[in-house]
Amino acid sequence: MGISFGNLEELIELVNNIYSFDLNGYSRASLKRRVSRIMDLYSLDFSSLKDNLTNTPGFFNKFLIEITVNVTEMFRDPSFYIALRDEVFPYLATFPHIKIWSAGCATGEEVYSLAILLEKQNLYQRAFIYGTDINSDVIEHAKRGIIDLKKMKAYSDNYFQTGSGDSLSEYYTARYDAAIIHHHLRKNSLFSIHNLVSGGVFNEFQLITCRNVLIYFNVTLQHRVLDLLYASLALFGFLCLGSKETLRSDHLTDKFRLVNKTQNIYQKIA
């Protein structure tokens, strides 16, 4: 089932009016696909979608889960993790405490990948990783640290490609069809809800990863979120964006040193 761009604007206004949830800065083409997907998933036409959003308790949360893209992997883009380990971690190792923010963490695979990478470099004991997302269900999922064992095959391949020399299975326990990340790799992490659109600075970080989140925002919102990420970084802290994302404005590029062009890693220098 499809909707028009006009319908989409109507929906954005409805969600804002009822839930004070602002979707205005979202890229329309992606959002339209997501909404059509929800309508297919629940067999709804546009008017019953609006009706459900207005009158069915709990439906908005389901809507929110499907609106956002929660596709993630452990060690997604192995070359990114190689760059992080080789070009960023040596610098982080000079800090007494390493606070990390995984912004838009979905079900937490990136947070656990970072935990493993830090552990491997003997940095995890000094580190604390915050994973945030707008969605309470994915946050609950992330907290559990349980990953579908079927997916672990692909994640193990990713991990192998980082050249770490050991096996991903060293870091989880397999039970039935689930993989549980070892407890000591979960204890220095905290998952909570945070909306990049409406939320503010909540801590100061040495490393922020916000990969493939900005692509779902229009340029105006991208500027705002990038300012928030900049303000959340300690001086000489690192910012990692998705490989096709950019800092957008000259006023930010002047404040960052480019660490790795292909992997889009920057260091705050001013």
Partner: peptide, 21 residues
């Protein structure tokens, strides 16, 4: 279209990328 991304067209005639399924 870059590898690994869907390529979408925005109503303002800009292109956007998407890493959904």
């Amino acid at each position: 279209a870059p590898a690994g991304y869907h390529l979408l067209m925005e109503p303002d005639h800009s292109m956007s990328l998407d890493v959904s399924e």
